[in-house]
Amino acid sequence: MGQPAEKHRRATYADLEAVPPHKVAELIGGELHVTSRGAPRHANARGALLVELGPLDRPGGWWILNGPELHFPDPSSPDDSDVLVPDLVGWRRERMPELPETAYVELAPDWVCDVLTESTEELKRELKMHVYAREGVRHAWLVDPRKRTLEAHTLLPSGAWALVGTHREAARLRIAPFQAIELDLAALWAK
């Protein structure tokens, strides 16, 4: 008879805290995911999008935050949390009138944006999008600087994501939930 299978230990927040600060650490379903912060093209797309969305980040509008830690209850373990670090997130100020004092946010955002790299695409597209849907995030964008695309997704009442559109290259457009401003996608792609 073979040996009994060794029970896999769930990762904890202490495991996340032990990751070097130059890495991004996330907990999803008790698994620790460690990735690089991203290459300069990634940082450029993220920063440029933050600038493009800047006019929305004011009283009466939105909170737009760069890389905050989000904590959501882990349904597979009531004592644990999924800890995600999206590249950019936004909350309507009517839903979150003040920023929390904690080092993390527990309220699901209205919008998330993750910038894809070759090494993070599967994590962000599969695991993280699943958690965002479960938590009721209404809008999600996936930006790919390599392909020069911005995918806009909206959450359906069924809990599934619907691709609203894939926008390419130098388009100037208005995308939900930020139809109030025109985005210049050319600003996101390093020249």
Rank of each mutant, 00 (worst) to 15 (best):
A39F: 14
P40N: 09
P40T: 07
H42D: 06
A43T: 07
L49M: 14
L50Y: 13
V51F: 13
V51E: 10
L53K: 11
L56D: 08
R58Q: 15
P59R: 12
G61D: 05
I64R: 02
I64Y: 00
I64G: 05
G67I: 05
E69P: 00
E69C: 05
L70M: 15
F72P: 02
F72K: 02
P73L: 04
D74G: 07
S76M: 05
S76Y: 07
S77T: 08
V83M: 10
L84M: 09
P86R: 10
D87N: 14
L88H: 01
L88V: 08
V89F: 12
G90A: 14
W91N: 06
E94S: 14
M96L: 15
E98Q: 14
L99W: 01
T102L: 14
A103R: 15
Y104R: 12
Y104C: 10
V105H: 08
V105S: 04
W111F: 14
W111I: 03
V112F: 06
V112M: 09
L116S: 00
L116R: 00
E118C: 00
T120H: 07
L123V: 04
K124Q: 12
K128R: 09
M129G: 03
A133D: 07
A133R: 13
A133L: 11
G136P: 09
G136L: 06
G136I: 12
G136W: 05
V137L: 06
R138P: 01
W141T: 00
L142P: 01
P145E: 08
P145C: 07
R148M: 08
T149C: 09
L155G: 04
W161D: 08
A162I: 09
A162W: 07
L163V: 11
V164T: 11
T166A: 09
H167A: 02
H167G: 05
R168G: 13
R168N: 11
A171Q: 10
R172V: 13
L173C: 08
L173E: 12
